[in-house]
Simulated scan of single mutants.
Amino acid sequence: MATWTAKDSIVILGAGIIGLDVALVLVRKGLGHLVTIVAEHLPGDTAPDYTSPWAGCNYSSISGSDANALRWDRLGYRHLLSLATQHSAESYVARTSSTEIWDDVVPSDKIKIMSEYLEKFAVLTPEQLPEGAAFGVTFNTVTLHAPKHLQWLRATLEKAGVTFIRRSVPDLPSVVGPQTEVVFNCIGNAASTFTGVQDPKCYPTRGQVLVVRAPGVTRNMMRYGDGYITYVIPRPLSNDQVILGGYLQKNVGDHATYDHETQDILKRTTALSSQLRESNGGKGPEVLGVASGLRPSREGGARVERVELLVDGRARALVHNYGAGGTGYQAGYGMALDAVKTIEALLPSQSVSASL
């Protein structure tokens, strides 16, 4: 029986959005004082291997059509919409009008489920679709300022008693302390090679994005096609910054950026968004920066699973929670709810914190 007396009773390995969302779920159960997050990179860092700060970042229809992905999206949308309603300025999450367009027909079951919970959901008429498009919808999405949101999460978690430790670790047993009862493995792309995990289903999906200044861009725009994705995402509370993309390059682990990709992104996004074309007095977007990020993808979808971790002859609960690909921000909270549910019977009874 766990005593739950030490700071390292619950250890989360990884401080990307997936690990931070797990901590937030635990904090909302009144357990922040038992949680320690161990990671090489922490909110505020911009290291190439730290994926979360490079995200677009919004709720979109990019996820798969399997039951888990659809359920996590629904839970994540509810969570982010609540932040946009109650804590928008502090959390850097905003409710934003969105248009999403597909070159091919979208599975009807996915659209039906989306229509059940997305605010102001409507299907575009054929006359409203651009040339070459087969289907489109409009709804209220949520957009996030990814780096600022991560820093807000860290401050919120620390205020609730969560400890952050910057440390590079070689394997899972290295994060287990004398009082550790539960380890959440939220290591993203590292899952493919990390000792004790080494999941062959994991692979990076590269994307290049532009940070631009484009006053007047207020609508989120997405277009999905064969081998490409184009997006225009206004970044909330950022002095007119907009994120433009992008690419979905499977099994590409290249952190470099390329001018020909920048030009291609500008061409596609300005064709997609009239607001972008008309920004800066008709001059179009002003490029402020270019970056690439590696989405932590996994064949078959994300892994949320409890197993045993044997260290020094004693078993601890190990909960794997990784492989969200490009859906970490929108699915992460739903994944965290499932991850914490796997060890709920082990947790001490605490009052829920209503302030978060």
Rank of each mutant, 00 (worst) to 15 (best):
P147Y: 03
T85V: 10
P48M: 03
A133M: 10
E131I: 07
K112I: 14
G76M: 02
L144M: 11
N68V: 12
A94C: 10
E119A: 11
A146I: 01
H79N: 10
G56I: 00
A94D: 08
W72F: 13
Y59I: 15
P43I: 02
S108E: 15
L150H: 01
P53E: 05
S97Q: 15
P126T: 08
G132L: 08
A47S: 13
H149T: 01
V93D: 00
R74P: 04
D109L: 10
R95W: 10
E100T: 06
R71S: 13
V137E: 00
S52W: 02
D73N: 13
R71G: 09
L75S: 08
A133C: 13
G44I: 05
T125E: 12
G136Q: 04
T138R: 12
F121I: 05
S60V: 06
Y50W: 06
R78H: 13
T138M: 07
A55Y: 04
D104Y: 14
I111V: 15
E116K: 07
P130V: 03
L150K: 06
H145E: 08
A122L: 11
D103L: 12
E131Q: 13
L144S: 00
F121D: 06
Y59E: 13
L70N: 05
S63K: 12
A134N: 08
A94V: 07
H87L: 13
A67K: 13
Y117I: 09
L144N: 03
L118Q: 06
W72Y: 12
A55T: 01
L81R: 15
K148F: 11
A122N: 14
T96K: 03
S115N: 10
L80Q: 06
F135P: 00
L118Y: 04
S82M: 10
I101R: 00
T51I: 09
V93E: 01
Y92T: 09
F121Q: 07
T96H: 03
L129G: 02
N140P: 07
S61A: 14
S65A: 15
L150V: 04
S98P: 02
V123H: 08
T141E: 06
Y92D: 07
V93K: 01
V137T: 06
L81W: 15
P53H: 01
R95N: 11
V123G: 00
I113Y: 14
P130Y: 07
A89N: 14
D104R: 14
H87Q: 14
W72Q: 03
K112Y: 15
A47T: 10
V123M: 09
G132A: 03
Y50V: 00
L124D: 02
L144I: 13
S91E: 05
D104S: 15
G76V: 06
S63N: 13
P126E: 08
T51L: 08
A47D: 11
D103V: 11
C57P: 01
T143M: 04
A69G: 07
R74M: 12
E119M: 13
S52C: 05
L70V: 12
E131A: 14
E127I: 06
S82V: 02
D45H: 10
A47M: 09
V142Q: 06
A133R: 09
S63P: 01
V123L: 09
R95L: 12
Y59R: 15
L118D: 00
